[in-house]
Design a binder for these strands. Structure first.
Lengths: 133, 133
DNA sequence: CTGCATGCAAAAACTTTGCACCGCC
DNA sequence: GGCGGTGCAAAGTTTTTGCATGCAG
């Protein structure tokens, strides 16, 4: 594999992601990095996000609705996706329990990782719903 | 919401899905249904798959790589996705354990459902890997 | 009849890629 | 200078949608 050289654009992408906890899409990253690098291209953003995800420096989240999102928080945790507004929120769940469940699975293949998404209504949308009644 | 009328095309899609356990993509459904309805359009396939998923009659699986897949098996179960060949395999895990974990999550929103994907190498690819060595 | 479902095609949404150029080591 | 990264644009992939027509209830 080719050597990896540092670049200002990639640094800026990491900086931006580390400043957010709301799991931005590639396009949101692009729009924001443009404030600093007006000439950066969407292709570069995608290339770097893919690279960083492969390196394990960020996490890619496929919500199943709309564009993929990216999370700088690589510690084991899970995601909640609001079915009303689409926002993605970190969940603190003890991964150990789920990992214990995995070890009990009878499966001939080799399980190397897992992701879990929880769906429902986020606190914001719950509040709005109650107000509307 | 509008009333739902039965259609031969939708019936055929359900029939096809119920005959498979390999979680076909919309395109695979399309190609196969065309044997029976040569004039069916991809749009109709997508419309019906979305509808059925909303009704809870099938399950949509966003693997994060390539097109979404659809599963006729709506009983609680999880999916294994092979990182080598992309195949999707049903996993028999006791959902109750995971649901117990969920109830212990401290979260102000309302969790209504969850999905989990497990990644790794499927039995087939493991075998090939061993043979190649 | 009424209006939902379909076929068709265009377009939208999202992501990847080829290529020439730029800049770091 | 060599090689990886970038910008730009084109193309690829997957999914949605507008509209006229067809068919179920």
């Amino acid at each position: 594999m080719p050597a990896i050289k540092r670049s200002k654009q990639r640094d800026a992408i990491i900086d931006f992601l580390s400043s957010r906890t709301d799991h931005p899409t590639a396009d949101i990253v692009y729009v924001n990095i443009r404030k600093q690098f007006p000439n950066i291209s969407l292709g570069t953003v995608y290339r770097n996000l893919s690279l960083l995800a492969q390196l394990g420096e960020i996490q890619k989240i496929s919500t199943g609705t709309g564009a993929d999102r990216f999370d700088w928080n690589t510690t084991p945790h899970y995601h909640f996706i609001c079915t009303d507004c689409g926002s993605v929120i970190d969940l603190e769940v003890d991964a150990l329990n789920i990992i214990k469940d995995i070890s009990s699975i009878s499966f001939d293949g080799q399980i190397e990782g897992h992701v879990a998404y929880f769906y429902g209504k986020c606190p914001e949308c719950l509040k709005k719903q109650r107000q509307a009644q």
